[in-house]
Design a protein around this nucleic acid. Sequence first.
DNA 1: CTTTTACCGCGACACCTGTCGCGTTAAGAT
DNA 2: ATCTTAACGCGACAGGTGTCGCGGTAAAAG
Lengths: 218, 218
Amino acid sequence: MAVTKKEAESGSEAAEPPPSAARRPGGRTARVRDQVLAAVGPLLVEHGFDGLSVDAVAARSGVHRATVYRRWRDVGGLLADVLDAAGADRWTAPDTGCLEGDLRALNEEVQDALSEESSLARALIAASFRSAGAADALRRFWEDRYERCAHVVERAVARGELAPPVEARSLLVAATAPLYHHLVLLHGAPDPALPGEAARTAVLAARAGAFGTRSRTG
Amino acid sequence: MAVTKKEAESGSEAAEPPPSAARRPGGRTARVRDQVLAAVGPLLVEHGFDGLSVDAVAARSGVHRATVYRRWRDVGGLLADVLDAAGADRWTAPDTGCLEGDLRALNEEVQDALSEESSLARALIAASFRSAGAADALRRFWEDRYERCAHVVERAVARGELAPPVEARSLLVAATAPLYHHLVLLHGAPDPALPGEAARTAVLAARAGAFGTRSRTG
DNA sequence: CTTTTACCGCGACACCTGTCGCGTTAAGAT
DNA sequence: ATCTTAACGCGACAGGTGTCGCGGTAAAAG
């Protein structure tokens, strides 16, 4: 679980530390953070999101309750911190050779991530409704993912599959939104056909001129 | 607040009452239900979803805490009951004369409903992550709405705007999902242009042959 | 090494959440 | 009118959640 030091206080909205005041991010403080974050994942898998209380995390990590409350404020803050750590991974968008294949592969990843029993993504979505810190972390995470996925669209344009201009973000949202809608909002069961269908739909719309910066309804 | 008697026990998963046992849905019981449900709305508007506790509802309605817990189990059950009452309204899909106009009007309704400060829809989505009763009620509500909106697609086919067959539900999901994605999952601010863009995208995809029961990629 | 103080452990605390048993009330049946 | 009992009111209770003040520990500075 790689942890970047620079994000030591992420997930908290009272952002900036006093400019010249001495802080202590090293030694014991860092060890406490590692212990706590290391306890979140297993607890999430074992007891699900509803079983993920600050108390349980404190007990498992061996850190005192009050310390966890002071540094992370609530469960959302904890999830936000682990998400920020996870967001700094080396994930890249799939590259299957064609736009529809890329989008389909992307959707299948999304469906897998959202379908597993104790999904971190699902837990964070739930937490984002009760914790501002979790909501912010989720937004940052998705924004980062959209940025990386934009490469998929750029490749498609370079191959001549799409005529520029194309708003990558709108296209990606159109391709993935039906999945989230079905799995998260409607709490539906995974549908093996849905990733492909949503990808195909988005590609058809893109070829017909949607997602251009200027509307050409044709 | 019209309340249909038949739904007296909706939102509870231990569904069926003993077949020949005598129940008492009238008189005091009905009055208690009305008092409680009447208290949910105002509390939701005043204090938001986080301030909507069973205790607060009980206090405002004048009904004892234990009674509310017994009949509705949790906040999700309360919201589910309110939603079932709201689902029995006379809402019909917009009819503007063309498919894109209908979808755009529909999306604007969705955006308005989701953007208001203390949105019932938003609260129910949040509750659906913590309460099975709320999740079921939400699914029922949306399924009902999709059924009513199918008329929009049928009219479009009748006018010759689309060539059958067209899966109405998939088209409606594609048209509305980007809105939910932006407003609910990304917690984004309302975007006046988004309803129209999403509607146009869905129409373009539909004209290109998406949503047909058989794929014709063109 | 000594000093400073950021951060942590600790226990107490007020509040909220959900359940239970018991007595009472009144809806529905006779 | 009378009886039966479903549904409610009531208070107590255990457990969880979040905050606070105090004292101790150990980073970081000198």
